[in-house]
Structures are given as structure tokens and as C-alpha cells.
């Protein structure tokens, strides 16, 4: 059913820390690995070893350069997967009912056996979180690893999304954002978590933690004079060697 639930019991989602993400793309690989072998159609690749490789991914990492008014530019790595929006426009546009949002936990999923591959949901998503698989012709998107988080066959520490479990710098956190006492909600409150494109009115569940303010430069200044180069031009023996070698 493509009518959105008025209320979901939980709001399971991710909190992504832009301060600690090192841009290693490990989450991209683990996401592709887990989701190719589990829920729904595999994430296919086209021409993987050829000149023009493409493929389906549910999670991708962009990198941005941000230039403040003063000081040096910052490089920020930016992982992006479905934000499991509360007001998900991708769900309401779907003509078949293949796209839906779960009442119990707020996860947005695609029922692939109903999907006709019209692509309208990908047009409606402002974040580029949905990709059509060109092998199977069905829409793929992040499932919040629904087949891990409730999976009693996995050891308890593995019952979290593959990307969260993999991240070597702990930049991805998983939890219930409807519960203000959950670790993720506390993290969002403490670090001032934000919504992406709030003006699009999608009310994303996933939150992004902005980079922490950088250190200032004046601490370095104390020692800076001592670090000045002693001699610009080599003199004496070294100078002679330099000149002689250059002549050769």
C-alpha cells in the first residue's frame, strides 16, 4: 500500500558522523556484499572488468571540499544511503504498491515481485537513494539490512546493518530515532544532528552529524619561528658540492 502510515511505532535508522568518516568506502563494499547474497535480487554489475563498468549499489560515499570564509578548506567524506523518510515521496508515487513503509519500524522497502521497474520512485527521491537494477529491472534500495537486524541466526553483535558493523571508524550508528533515550537519539541531540534537504519536506529519519569545529592555528604559532629554515642557500662545502654537481 503506497499510503504512508500516519505513525510508525519505531523509527529505525542510521546516524552518520561526518566528523569521523575517513572515506574508506568499506561500508559501500560490505553493503554490496551482504545485499547481493540476501534480500531480493542480487545487485548486478554490467561490464565489471571492461572499459565502462557500472553497477547497482545501495550506499555510496561522496567527497566534498568545503571552503570556510577564513582558514583552510576541509575535505569531508559523505556516505549516503536511503534515509527512510517519514514523509517518503518515493512511496506515494509508486503505482503498483511495491514501495511501502513499514508501520512497525518505519523501514522503507520495495516488494520486488510487484515492482514493474517504472523508475518513478527514483525520480521522486531527492537523495539518489534508489537505483534500478539493469539486470532484473526492479528497483533496489537500502533495506536497513532488515534481514540482519532481526535475524536470530546471527550472533547478537552482528544484528546490525552490514555498513554499521563494518565501518572501521565508527562513523555509522544504528538505532531507534523515535526513542529519545536511545543511544542514537542522544548522539543526535549532543552533536546537533541535521536533516539533508529539509526544504524538500521528506522528514528523513537518518541524521547526519556535522564535522566538529577545527582547532585554531595560534597554538602552532608559538613554535613557528623556531621552525624557520636556517639557511635558504647551502654555503661552504655543501654549497661547493651543490654547484659542482649542477655543472656536471
Amino acid at each position: 500500500m503506497t499510503q504512508l502510515p500516519t505513525h510508525t511505532e519505531k523509527k529505525l535508522g542510521l546516524v552518520i558522523d561526518l566528523d569521523t568518516c575517513v572515506g574508506c568506502h568499506a561500508c559501500v563494499v560490505s553493503c554490496k556484499g551482504w545485499n547481493t547474497e540476501n534480500y531480493g535480487a542480487p545487485l548486478s554489475d554490467q561490464d565489471p572488468y571492461g572499459a565502462d563498468p557500472t553497477g547497482t549499489f545501495l550506499n555510496r560515499v561522496h567527497s566534498y571540499e568545503v571552503q570556510p570564509n577564513q582558514g583552510v578548506a576541509q575535505l569531508i567524506h559523505f556516505p549516503k544511503s536511503c534515509l527512510h523518510c517519514d514523509d517518503a515521496p518515493c512511496v506515494t508515487v509508486c503505482p503498483t504498491g511495491a514501495s511501502y513503509k513499514r508501520v512497525e519500524d518505519g523501514i522503507v522497502l520495495v516488494n520486488e515481485s510487484d515492482c514493474i521497474g517504472c523508475g518513478l520512485c527514483a525520480w521522486a527521491c531527492p537523495y539518489g537513494a534508489r537505483e534500478m537494477d539493469s539486470d532484473q529491472g526492479v528497483m533496489k534500495k537500502c533495506t536497513l539490512c532488515v534481514d540482519r537486524i532481526y535475524n536470530e541466526n546471527l550472533p547478537e553483535e552482528d544484528r546490525q546493518p552490514a555498513c554499521v558493523r563494518t565501518c572501521p571508524s565508527n562513523a555509522r550508528h544504528f538505532g531507534d530515532l523515535a526513542d529519545s533515550e536511545s543511544d542514537v537519539s542522544k548522539l543526535v541531540a549532543e552533536r546537533g544532528g541535521i536533516d539533508l534537504m529539509p526544504e524538500q519536506g521528506t522528514k528523513p529519519v537518518n541524521k547526519y552529524l556535522p564535522p566538529r569545529p577545527k582547532d585554531t592555528w595560534d597554538q602552532i604559532d608559538i613554535l613557528a619561528p623556531l621552525l624557520d629554515p636556517v639557511a635558504e642557500e647551502p654555503k661552504g662545502f655543501l654549497g661547493w658540492l651543490d654547484k659542482t654537481l649542477e655543472k656536471l
Partner: peptide, 8 residues
Amino acid sequence: IGKVTAFE
């Protein structure tokens, strides 16, 4: 923070 440009 400032002006954003795509780096990679």
C-alpha cells in the same frame, strides 16, 4: 561551514 564543492 562554508562553500561546498564536489571533490570526488
